Computed example of a mutant assay.
Amino acid sequence: MPQATPLLRLMNLLLTPGMRTRKDPDAVFDGILAEVQRDHAPLTAEDLAAVDGLRLLLADHAANPDLSGLGWMSAQDQIRDRLRNRAVVRSAQAQRPEVRDEPVTAPVFVVGLPRTGTTLTYNLVARHPGHRGPKLWEMTNLGLPLPEAERAKVIEKTRRRFAAVGKLSPAWAHLHPLVAESEEEDFMLRAHTEMFATWGPAPRYIDWVKGADLTDDFRFLREALQVIAAGEAPDRWVLKHPMDLWRTPEILRAFPDARFVWTHRAPSSAVASGCSMSEATHTMYLKPGRIDLERIGREWLEISAGGVERAMALRDQLPADAVVDVVYDDLVAEPEAVVRGVFDQLGIEWTPTDAANLAAATDRSGHTPHRYTLERYGLDEDQVAKAFAAYEIPASTLR
């Protein structure tokens, strides 16, 4: 069970005076917006409309009486990062207009609920020679490519930043290690995702994003990738985020030739894992003793089951070869056979580098399993099965 560390308690105490600004979250949002535009090209009216949902997210957190000092500061920092991304990309496009022509050809989106094999699959496809995914350090320091010496400094700064997160919440660091030079999830570049529910209750924002058309978000993702790799475009970009699973129409409007790798596993494991992840993040954002585990369970069951139901319905609208399925149990039993099958369907040649990447990724020596249960969050197998009644896991692909 995640616990507030002494360092986390001290940080919350020191940051308590800053909580007074919660009284006017609109003013805080406008201040952040002015700050990020100060040294960059101004955002267009279309940009401002695309990110305005974050104003609602900030207001939801400001209204939460259980929010901690660190939680309020972190919510502002996360929103600042998203707004800055827009400003940086617009500045880069003004400085080097040719970046708008950088190729982003047939990107692969790895989709699936948490703990269904997405990370393993993502890393292996992204690390194939000629492919790449956006790195953590690139997404948290978005900009045009840097000279090698300057790049090394930024990577080191990113390492220190996320090492500090690990000290504040060892549980989060165990659940999802944040490695500066490793591939990370594309929502760190985009503005909107239901994943923000892991910070703490944000009911109005979650209702809003559920019905939002995020096409602009994914078009901006394309522009951000063009900036990251200006002049150094890979043969293929590879992206990952669980909530991309039910955003295929928006993704295809931004990336018409995109392919999807959908990982599947019994929903109970995915829901319990999502709840555990949310609890670990709540520990950093909320005051000690204020986490409502049953609310987390209800929310993640609704987000996950509702999203998968949407994804199942949307799949019928996709080209027949747009989706490659991966069954988690198969991936665990025979990882090389499954991953080579994925590569074949994507038209990727298996190489010795891929074999070495697979061996490294499946080496579990020194790994401590992550433990989680549905019951901790007020759920049971029957509830989950009923919520996911429309979801059919594909039959085993192994022969």
Rank of each mutant, 00 (worst) to 15 (best):
L67R: 04
R55E: 01
A41N: 10
G71V: 12
R22V: 03
N64W: 00
Q37C: 10
V36T: 02
A49W: 01
P17R: 08
A50R: 12
E35D: 15
L10G: 07
L13G: 13
A49N: 08
Q78P: 00
R38S: 13
A4D: 08
D77L: 15
D81K: 11
A87V: 05
R55S: 04
L7Y: 05
D47K: 13
P25K: 01
Q76M: 07
T5N: 04
G71R: 06
Q37D: 09
E35T: 15
D52P: 14
L13Q: 13
R55Q: 06
W72S: 05
L57W: 03
L33G: 07
P42A: 13
G71M: 12
L67E: 02
R20K: 13
I32R: 03
L54W: 00
L58E: 05
L67P: 11
I79N: 00
A50G: 10
H40G: 02
G31N: 11
P65S: 03
G53H: 09
D60A: 01
N64E: 03
K23D: 07
G53R: 08
L33V: 06
L57I: 06
M19R: 09
S68Q: 02
P17C: 11
T44H: 04
L8D: 13
A63V: 05
P65N: 09
L83W: 12
D66M: 04
F29D: 00
L15M: 09
R80D: 03
L56I: 14
M73F: 05
R86P: 04
P25I: 01
A50C: 06
G18K: 02
R38V: 05
D52K: 14
D24V: 00
R86V: 08
V88A: 10
G18C: 01
L10R: 07
Q76R: 13
M11N: 08
R9H: 14
N12V: 14
Q37S: 14
D60V: 07
L67A: 04
D60Q: 09
A41S: 14
T16Y: 05
G31D: 07
V88S: 03
G53T: 04
P6A: 08
A45L: 14
D60W: 06
V36N: 01
S74H: 06
